[in-house]
Design a protein around this nucleic acid. Structure first.
Lengths: 197, 197, 197, 197
DNA sequence: AATGAATGAGGATTCATTCAT
DNA sequence: GATGAATGAATCCTCATTCAT
């Protein structure tokens, strides 16, 4: 509580710098939901609304549409990295976390398909390959060879393939399909769940 | 009450009803190109412009955005069906044609991913499953078992997976990746080319 | 997918939230004028232009065409209600105010004729009967019987009849005809003027 | 059946000049219906469609939107004139026919309100006053004085007033209101029905 | 640092009207 | 004479982005 303790009625919520971080998180969470419901092209105004902040706040934190998507992706990628960095991590474990994000986040799937839509140099795409590379690096470290995939390139291709299979209205359905896809590839996947310490 | 008093001077070209079929084809061809360049969400006005017709013509032939996409997809699916129906057709041959369309047509890939974007029940999606089923039927007839795929469902899952792998700026690159994907799945694919009698 | 990359140069005036109320009032005033000149079906863009605001502002304040008309009507009805509620109000006095609005506001006349145009259930019509009932209620309280009208229903019919007589290019002409109409009905009408305290 | 009895299969209906008159009548009838359902601003294309002819035919017979409306009005006015010219015609009888058209034809009501909408010099309005004058003339001849209306002007004002009262979704409801309006004016009206010789 | 109104370009859609056949 | 496709201007409406407060 580094704020002035004085209660202030009027003036709609300006809780000081602490709120900034909170707002940012709320925006990312809102964006994730909106993306899941309406796809990556959803109106930014809706994201701000769901986050419970004004449009201006969104633009304070993210200069443009791409930045919002990137922030969402960043979180997904970071979790995969953390899963990969955790002690005792195995390829199948990391793939489980990766698969979780694949089934849970529309934006994350979009990441793997960014360059397909063609044209518009969104800046989403700009970052996309960098993020994609971070995922690749996370997986690379755990490649052991007990499967049909030849190397990191094959593995990332497989990830893209699985993401192609991840369709369906509910997360459960998407998970079912993702696991079926990994099975077709002959790859063992651990528990499908978010990374949590 | 709302009237439309139009201009009175110029009135370029009206080749008569004969042009109707030609225009429809031009619109589909234009849509295919535009979709490849800008994705399925591209402005309809651009399609009309590229087809060299007024916007009204587009709306005459296709009541809405979904109808345009469906018309494009319809062509792709029909070629696959024709390839499947041709005498001497083999699964790998049909898959070659299918793969061609996968690498050539953004809309066709979208077909396999229609339900991922979430939200908007476009009517694209409405037809999508019907079209998807037609593809499945075309492939089903040639399932022989000389591979790891268990049945029609596995096969369609595999198609979705390959479509997930089909990214990249050029068709050649996309073909390279598609073939790599089929290889990972252990499925033999014939010549990647459009069906031609 | 559809994006709106706007221009980057000019960005005229943004007087801040303070302007909101002012803009709303300006829009209603503009709508009243436009309606008088071009009827209820006039382009909304013209209203925004005359109000000196962007089209977006109009849509912010009024979700659709009906809402604009309703806002205009609301003002008219409110004045009649106020005239009816004023101390010392008499039927003829209220009718004078009502007649003023009849001669001044095309939208207000439209209110009484809403259901004639047939077809389109505008939502204008939805509110219309509610507003119409408010007018009826305002008059009802002052029915005294010193005339040929039997009751509230007759009175509202009479109002509709007078509104039918209110034609002509200038307000003065319309007032002349309105008064002649009331005379034919044998109803005494007070000063034809807006309500002002 | 004054047509050539030769059956002709192909060539979409061009039954010779005789068809022209039939088409014209069909267009007017269609316009009357469409006007009743969707108001005077309804799309011309709908009128042509309902008449079962191409758009071009409509334009052959009527140079513009106004001409269509005028043709519809013309029919209404002519019936009133015929009723007035019939031997043994009385004012109340003519008013009965007039009232029929008032309750049956949206366009005809519009005639009496043409100048209210303001602005747009439709050409509907151009003819409107001429037609209106023809109605006045028809009534004038039968003015006898057994009522409160002072003269032709009063009578036309009364007609306008009644037309203002003619609202409601069904013709029956509109007739009910029209008769109530005439009653308020103390004018006796004969049978409400179209003129038929 | 937040709010939320305003701007205005862009894209969708609808018709009035023309014209080749 | 009829058909109905084509044109394209006008209108509707949406949103990305800026900015006064």
């Amino acid at each position: 509580m580094t704020q002035h303790p004085t209660a202030e009625e009027r003036r709609p919520a300006n809780d000081g710098p602490k709120a900034a971080a909170r707002n940012r998180a709320a925006l990312i969470a809102a964006a994730r939901e909106i993306y899941a419901e309406h796809g990556l092209g959803a109106p930014l105004s809706g994201i701000a609304r769901r986050a419970g902040v004004g449009q201006g706040v969104l633009y304070r934190h993210f200069p443009d549409r791409a930045a919002v998507a990137n922030a969402v992706l960043e979180e997904n990628v970071r979790e995969v990295e953390q899963a990969a960095a955790a002690s005792g991590a195995t390829l199948s474990g990391v793939l489980g976390v990766l698969t979780w994000h694949l089934t849970e986040s529309a934006a994350f799937i979009g990441l793997l398909h960014a360059d397909r839509t063609g044209g518009r140099a969104d800046g989403v795409h700009a970052h996309a390959s960098a993020l994609s590379e971070r995922v690749a690096r996370s997986l690379r470290g755990h490649l052991t060879g007990g499967h049909r995939l030849g190397g990191s390139d094959d593995l990332m291709l497989a990830v893209a393939m699985v993401s192609g299979a991840v369709t369906g209205p509910t997360r459960e359905e998407r998970e079912r399909r993702a696991l079926a896809a990994w099975r077709l590839l002959g790859v063992k996947v651990g528990a499908v769940r978010p990374f949590a310490g």
